[in-house]
């Protein structure tokens, strides 16, 4: 087995060509997942989390999307250069995604059994034929794994007959049944109530730990990544701005954006909330040059509007894309 990363995104750019111009959304994304790791990806709405992962699965609509630069290595092979057959194998056996909106992810005109069955047939069989009985059995097992009772009846149901929480569980069952290596979960449970979201997150964690699957958990809620991830990336306006082990990130956040977010989160300990971050996420038609955060940054310096910061290493398990941390320490 190779010791290299399972997934390695290198300097990825994604643009959308729309009426009125080019949305320069991803601006050189670097992102790595090692085998068995649980990685969190956190950032506010519109920062490009879903776009990044859609690029990985090659499900971006092209046009309007274009990928003017970058590589996405999965087990050492560049997904962006794969032919249909190899890509099919990656989607069938390698990476699967739990989409943000479980209602949209499930096809309303097919039963749960038909949809889950298709995933099982496509991936678990690994190309060989399996009997209908076996497909059915595996589908039942998959539903039991996500703690859905009465699996036999559920397989005959249509998505609209299920609650939001049950639909989310079905999506997870499909992802888990489909993949053995990497699951990308895009805001699982976000649209659901906290008591249900908590159940979904615990379920996801249990499954990936049991099966030793790697997982990328996408969320806009800082607290959610803390519950699950070993390592966390913080994203802002199309770029990763900070990465650290979970423990390190939450005890020592460094990037001015991460700091602003942490202060804005209401705490159970009380004491009021800080005023947040002034301004809003930039217009991707005409994003600011240099560090894209500079118009909102209270520590911006001259260089910030001129040059793009790279990831600077502040310790073995902590990197920050901010000029304050160039050369291993704060700049004057």
């Amino acid at each position: 087995m190779s010791v290299g990363p399972l997934l390695d995104i290198k300097d990825l750019y994604v643009h959308f060509h729309v009426f009125g111009g080019t949305l320069k959304v991803l601006d050189g994304v670097n992102f790595t997942v090692y085998s068995g790791e649980k990685v969190g990806l956190v950032g506010e709405t519109g920062c490009g989390k879903t776009t990044t992962m859609k690029a990985v699965l090659r499900v971006l609509p092209m046009p309007p999307a274009r990928i003017p630069g970058g590589e996405i290595y999965f087990k050492g092979r560049d997904i962006l250069k794969m032919g249909a057959e190899e890509l099919g194998r990656v989607r069938g056996e390698g990476i699967s995604m739990v989409f943000q909106d479980p209602t949209a992810a499930l096809n309303p005109v097919f039963t749960i059994g038909q949809q889950l069955g298709a995933v099982v047939r496509y991936s678990l069989a690994g190309g060989k034929r399996i009997s209908r009985k076996e497909i059915h059995q595996r589908a039942v097992v998959a539903l039991k794994e996500v703690a859905l009772p009465d699996a036999e009846r559920l397989l005959k149901n249509y998505p609209f007959q299920l609650s939001g929480g049950m639909r989310q569980r079905v999506c997870i069952a499909m992802a888990v049944a489909g993949s053995r290596e990497l699951i990308v979960a895009d805001e699982p449970g976000t649209s659901l109530d906290v008591s249900i979201q908590d159940q979904i997150l615990r379920l996801l964690r249990r499954l990936v730990e049991e099966k030793n699957t790697s997982v990328i958990l996408i969320t806009h809620t800082l607290g959610v990544v803390r519950e699950i991830a070993d390592r966390v990336y913080v994203m802002y306006a199309g770029k990763m701005v900070e990465v650290a082990t979970t423990e390190e990130l939450f005890s020592r956040p460094l990037h001015p954006y991460t700091l602003g977010l942490m202060k804005a989160v209401p705490k159970l300990t009380g004491g009021g909330i800080a005023d947040g971050i002034p301004g809003r996420i930039p217009d991707y038609l005409d994003p600011p040059g240099g560090c894209r955060f500079h118009p909102r940054c209270d520590q911006a310096m001259g260089v910030c509007s001129q040059e793009k910061p790279w990831f600077y290493r502040v310790s073995d398990d902590h990197e920050v894309a901010c000029f304050l941390y160039r050369e291993g320490g704060k700049e004057k």
Binding site: V194, S195, Q197, D198, L201, T221, L222, G223, V224, R226, E227, F250, M262, V265, K267, L268, T269
Partner: peptide
Amino acid sequence: QMLLSSIPVVSAAEEELK
């Protein structure tokens, strides 16, 4: 108590309160 225990939090001090 169930609601409180379900809240995702960002610090150990908050974890204590759940």
